[in-house]
Structure formats: structure tokens, C-alpha cells
């Protein structure tokens, strides 16, 4: 049996008295896993927890075989982790190269490997011609690609992307999906998105979250099947999405 890269048991997240995630269980191996759901469903909280930013209020995590509650194991895990936050903060005076290099250094990549890895990451997101441009001069879509470059610079085994395609044009999204498939061939990619077509095109598996619970998990084809006979939505996947949500809320 293939080893799970992500093992989540009874994950609960509370902020004050508000419970945002309610005892989630999740097990993921290699592949591209799409997280769908309306605003406030808990997708970002789940991704932040997997990125070791948030500590679970309850439940346990095991990521790439490491226990993030142990300091040493968390460091080892973070070396093999890539994360793109929903809102990417950046230093306006940094160039694209400097920004990606900064995070490669903070990930403690071996010194000799840093610069070639930065070049490869910039090439993978198609920003070769802007490598020396200041970040303040880039468009929103370009900044998103810079964020993706820093996430993949260490060739992560676990890549967590929060709304990665926001701001990308259709051609860039096609290229980005190819990148996801490449990384998902060996590692685990978890993508949170509002765009169901991204899920259909790039994800091997999909989950739908609502109000802190996982209300559906299966392949994109399974989600399409859920939408048969349901007429809300413009595409088969959208009909599946709205049908599952309606069922969960009924």
C-alpha cells in the first residue's frame, strides 16, 4: 500500500469560541488534491494547519511521515514543504530573483543549490524575462507566479496552494495546471480554489468543504455524477458542486 503523505485525524480548529474545523479526517498520497468550497468553509484554515502555521486545537497530524508538534521533525518537514498563501505579502523593492532566493535561503537549502534552484523555479512559472524586475512593477498575475515560484523552489514533496490561479490568465492557468501535474506525479499537491474548472483539469481527487466539514470526497468524475439531474450550474462539475452543497445543507 502506498504511504500517505498527509494523515489528519480528528482535526479541530477553534478561534476563541468559534469552531472552524470540526474533527476532519484526511489521508492523502501522491497526486493533486483539489479543495472546493464556499467562502468560510475552512479551506484556508485547513491549508494553514497543513502548512504548520496553525496548531490544531484538537486532533493529530502526520505530514510526510513527520509529527509537526515535535520541533525537530517540524524543521525537517518544512524543508520539504511548499506553501502559497491566499494573500502573498512581498517586498516591493525585491527583484523576482531576490524574492525567490530569500525563501530558498529561509528553507535552508544547501548554498550551492540555491541559485540554480531559483533559476529553475523562475523558468517553471515563465518569468525568465522578468527575473530582474522589481516586484512593485509586476502585475497581479505575475506576482501570483512569483508566489508559486517560491513555493516550488525546493522541489517540495508536499505543496499547499491557496487560490493559486487567482489573477492568472487562461494561458497561464493551462501552464500552471501542467506544473501541478508534474509535481503531483511524485509528491502531494493540495490546491484550494473557487474555480471548478481547475479541479476538473488538474486534480486527481477533489474534496468539497462546507462549514468546517468535508461533505464530499472523490474524483472529479464522481463529482460530475453527483450533479446529474441537477440543473444549477453552467458545467457538469459546477452542477456536481452545487448539488453536493445543497444536499449537505438540506
Amino acid at each position: 500500500m502506498a504511504m500517505s503523505n498527509v494523515e489528519v485525524r480528528g482535526l479541530t480548529q477553534r478561534f476563541g469560541r468559534t469552531e472552524v474545523l470540526h474533527g476532519l479526517d484526511l489521508e492523502l498520497g501522491a497526486g493533486v488534491f483539489g479543495l472546493l468550497g464556499p467562502n468560510g468553509a475552512g479551506k484556508t484554515t485547513l491549508l494553514r494547519t497543513l502548512a504548520t502555521i496553525l496548531r490544531p486545537s484538537d486532533g493529530s497530524l502526520r505530514l510526510l511521515g513527520y509529527d509537526p508538534s515535535d520541533h525537530g521533525e517540524k524543521r525537517a518537514l518544512r524543508r520539504r514543504l511548499g506553501y502559497l498563501p491566499q494573500s502573498l505579502g512581498y517586498y516591493p523593492n525585491f527583484t523576482v530573483f531576490e524574492f525567490v532566493e530569500y525563501f530558498a535561503l529561509l528553507k535552508e537549502m544547501p548554498s550551492r543549490e540555491v541559485r540554480p534552484a531559483v533559476v529553475r523555479a523562475i523558468e517553471r512559472v515563465g518569468l525568465e524575462d522578468r527575473a530582474r524586475s522589481k516586484l512593485r512593477t509586476l502585475s497581479g498575475g505575475m506576482l501570483r507566479r512569483v508566489g508559486i515560484a517560491q513555493a516550488v523552489v525546493n522541489e517540495p514533496d508536499l505543496l499547499l496552494l491557496d487560490e493559486p490561479t487567482a489573477g492568472l490568465d487562461p494561458e497561464q492557468r493551462v501552464g500552471f495546471r501542467q506544473l501541478l501535474r508534474e509535481i503531483g506525479a511524485d509528491g502531494t499537491v493540495v490546491v484550494s480554489t473557487h474555480l471548478v474548472e481547475d479541479v476538473g483539469a488538474a486534480c486527481t481527487e477533489v474534496a468539497l468543504m462546507d462549514k468546517g466539514r468535508m461533505v464530499f470526497r472523490g474524483t472529479p468524475e464522481d463529482l460530475v455524477v453527483q450533479g446529474q439531474g441537477h440543473d444549477v450550474g453552467d458545467s457538469p462539475l459546477e452542477r456536481g458542486y452545487t448539488s453536493v452543497l445543497a444536499g449537505a445543507r438540506a
Binding site: 502548512a51 504548520t52 502555521i53 524543521r75 518544512r78 524543508r79 514543504l81 506553501y83 498563501p85 494573500s87 502573498l88 505579502g89 512581498y90 517586498y91 516591493p92 530569500y102 525563501f103 535561503l105 529561509l106 528553507k107 535552508e108 517560491q150
Partner: peptide, 14 residues
Amino acid sequence: VDPAWELSQTMTVS
């Protein structure tokens, strides 16, 4: 204060 603060929470350098 630090623009990339959230991202830096996931780095090996704590």
C-alpha cells in the same frame, strides 16, 4: 510590518 510574515511562518529558519 514584515510583508511576507505569513509565508515566513512556514520556513525552516524559525
